[in-house]
């Protein structure tokens, strides 16, 4: 996308690119890449879910046209409910990132009574 051919004046000059795609925080670039994939996927999944919410709301009111979907503005109650659901979704999808796996696969059970 960044290679877009513009047909009108852009008033832009060449920028100095960042090297953020070269960093590895996990010592294995594949792991870094997987995390990027997961975040991007989360964004797309949420966009889809949210569109469906809009559709449901619109459907509940009248028939469906795409213009109606695009222009739909949620009520304050809907916005609050969706927000809550968004955060549940984020929690559900990403909370595993907070896990600290410090036991090897062969680790025995800790001492139990």
């Amino acid at each position: 996308m960044a290679e877009t051919k513009f047909t009108r004046p852009t008033f832009a000059v060449k920028a100095i690119p960042s090297d953020v795609n070269n960093v590895t925080f996990f010592g294995n670039p594949v792991l870094d890449n997987l995390v990027s994939v997961v975040i991007a996927m989360g964004t797309e999944v949420w966009a889809t879910k949210r569109r469906m919410k809009v559709m449901e709301s619109v459907l509940a009111k009248k028939g469906v046209t795409s213009e109606m979907l695009e222009k739909y503005v949620p009520t304050a109650e809907e916005a609050a409910a969706w927000e809550k659901d968004r955060d549940r979704f984020i929690e559900m999808t990403f909370s595993a990132l907070g896990n600290v796996g410090d036991l090897t696969a062969s680790a025995p059970f800790p001492k139990r009574g």
Partner: peptide, 18 residues
């Protein structure tokens, strides 16, 4: 300009806080 883009921004704002 599009509902999807608005939703993508909604996600990234939420994820940032998370």
């Amino acid at each position: 300009g599009s509902l999807d883009l608005e939703s993508q921004m909604d996600f990234t704002a939420g994820f940032r806080e998370f």
